[in-house]
């Protein structure tokens, strides 16, 4: 594992910890898109089916279990927790995420590495992850004001994607057989979606001001 990959996994982990911290400390999920969280839960559940068949490393197994467990816990909290669910901004979270699921599944049936059940689900999870942040970004845009922890959550998620791109560049030059087109192209698309958010995040950081997204 190279340093970029590790940095990517760690920023991904931090983003989830920041989100859990926000929900736990404020007993509120305001500003968080339940739809994005449900999509992530689906992404992890479909991608990590290999937990049942392949062993790569302890690190790999633990991280996968953490991602599945935390995403399910967050969805559970936002839907079922007595206090937390009341702060969910349902009227701002109107993105039609079923459309994303249908479109990415259709793409996975057309473009895959191998025509097997597992590989098609793997491709689906990669495509779905690329666009899963959209309901969250739309929600931030709508509410305009972004609270500190929600802003940091999205920032770390974006950083995770950026580090993965550096990781692929590194692997491309250091490993003879590293060509994972589906993951790399989807990863580029996914990172590009954060560009606008990053722009405003850095401006607010530079000016030491509260993060605000233009309407």
């Amino acid at each position: 594992m190279n340093i970029f990959r590790l940095a990517g996994d760690m920023t991904h982990l931090i983003s989830i910890l920041v989100l859990l911290l926000k929900i736990y400390a404020t007993k509120s999920c305001s500003g968080i898109s339940l739809k994005t969280q449900e999509l992530y839960a689906l992404v992890f559940l479909t991608r990590y089916l290999d937990l049942l068949t392949d062993f790569i490393s302890i690190y790999n197994t633990v991280m996968k279990l953490v991602f599945i467990g935390s995403s399910l816990a967050i969805v559970w909290c936002m839907r079922r927790h007595r206090v937390v669910r009341r702060s969910y901004d349902k009227e701002l979270d109107t993105f039609r995420h079923y459309f994303l699921i249908a479109a990415t599944f259709a793409l996975a049936v057309l473009v895959y590495e191998k025509f097997t059940f597992r590989e098609i689900l793997w491709a689906f999870s990669i495509y779905l992850e690329a666009v899963a942040i959209l309901p969250q970004l739309v929600m931030l845009q709508r509410s305009g004001n972004v609270d500190n922890l929600t802003g940091k959550y999205v920032f770390f998620l974006g950083a995770y994607r950026a580090f993965y791109i550096l990781n692929w560049i590194y692997r491309y030059f250091t490993e003879a057989r590293f060509t994972r087109w589906i993951a790399c192209v989807s990863g580029l698309v996914q990172t590009a979606l954060y560009a606008d958010f990053f722009y405003y995040y850095f401006i607010s950081w530079k000016n030491n001001a509260k993060l605000k997204l233009p309407a």
Binding site: D9, H12, D50, S57, F67, E113, W122, F178, A183
Partner: peptide, 10 residues
């Protein structure tokens, strides 16, 4: 012939 390398990324 083409055995793809293991999917070791998360």
């Amino acid at each position: 012939p083409s055995s793809s390398p293991p999917k070791d990324e998360l």
